[in-house]
C-alpha cells in the first residue's frame, strides 16, 4: 500500500472543513462557558454521534445515556479541556472510548468473564436498498450480501468513518487506536475484496449505460 498516493479529502475542494476556523472559535466559546456555543455543538454533533454510537450497541437508550454522560462531563470539565482542532474527531473518539468501556462493564456483569477488546460494529450500508431499487437480481444481491458479511468489524468501521463520516486516515487511525498504515489497509483491503469477489458484473454496468 503506497500511502503517499492516498487521496485526501481536503486539498482542492476544501468544502468539508471550511468552517474549521469557525469551529475553533465555537470550541473556545464553549470552554469559557458560553451556553449558546454548547447548544450549537450539541445540535450539530448529537445526531452524528448517535449515528456512530448505535453501530456499537443496538440498544439505543444505552447509547443515549452514554452521550448524555459524555456531554455533561464535557460541560463540567470544559475549563480544563484541550484546544481541540477537530471537534468531530475529538467527540467521536471520546464516545467510542466511553461506549466500549461501558459495554465491557455490562458484559462483566452478565458473565463475569475475562474482558477482551471485543466489540461489534453493525452498519447497514445503503447498498442493499440501492440494489433493490435498481432491480438487481436476487442472485447478485445475495452475492453482495455475503461479501459484505465477510468484512471484519474493523473494516466496516473504517469504511464507515472514511466514507460516511468523511474522515482522513490519520483521524481514523486516531479514533480506532491503530496506526496510520493499518487504517489505510483496512479500507483498501475491504475495497479490494469487494472488487475482486463480487464485482458488479454485467447486470449493473448495462443498467448504467442504458
Amino acid at each position: 500500500m503506497h500511502h503517499s498516493k492516498v487521496p485526501s479529502w481536503q486539498p482542492d475542494q476544501a468544502v468539508t472543513f471550511s468552517e474549521q476556523g469557525q469551529e475553533y472559535a465555537l470550541w473556545q466559546a464553549f470552554k469559557q462557558g458560553d451556553r449558546d456555543a454548547f447548544a450549537t455543538l450539541l445540535n450539530h454533533y448529537y445526531p452524528i454521534l448517535l449515528n456512530y454510537g448505535v453501530r456499537f450497541q443496538s440498544d439505543r437508550e444505552f447509547v443515549k445515556d452514554c452521550l448524555q454522560d459524555l456531554f455533561i462531563e464535557l460541560w463540567n470539565r470544559r475549563e480544563n479541556l484541550d484546544d481541540v482542532r477537530l471537534v468531530k474527531l475529538y467527540l467521536l473518539k471520546s464516545l467510542r472510548r466511553k461506549l466500549l468501556r461501558e459495554s465491557q462493564r455490562l458484559r462483566w456483569f452478565r458473565e463475569a468473564k475475562e474482558v477482551t477488546d471485543d466489540y461489534s460494529f453493525e452498519v447497514q450500508f445503503a447498498i442493499e436498498s440501492y440494489l433493490i431499487h435498481n432491480e438487481i437480481q436476487h442472485e447478485d444481491l445475495k452475492k453482495l450480501r455475503s461479501q459484505l458479511d465477510k468484512l471484519s468489524k474493523r473494516q466496516r468501521e473504517a469504511i464507515y468513518l472514511r466514507f460516511f463520516q468523511e474522515l482522513e486516515y490519520d483521524n481514523i487511525a486516531d479514533i480506532m487506536s491503530i496506526n496510520y498504515h493499518s487504517a489505510v489497509n483496512l479500507v483498501y483491503e475491504a475495497l479490494k475484496l469487494l472488487r475482486k469477489n463480487w464485482f458488479l458484473t454485467l447486470a449493473l454496468t448495462t443498467l448504467f449505460i442504458s
Binding site: 448517535l50 449515528n51 447497514q124 450500508f125 445503503a126 436498498s129 440494489l131 464507515y160 466514507f163 475495497l191
Partner: peptide, 21 residues
C-alpha cells in the same frame, strides 16, 4: 467508463442508511 461505474456504485453503496428517529 466501466471503472467509473464501479466507483460510482461503491460510493453510493457505502453511504449509510439514515438512522430512523
Amino acid at each position: 467508463q466501466e471503472i467509473l461505474e464501479q466507483a460510482r456504485t461503491l460510493i453510493i453503496a457505502f453511504q449509510c442508511e439514515p438512522l430512523p428517529t
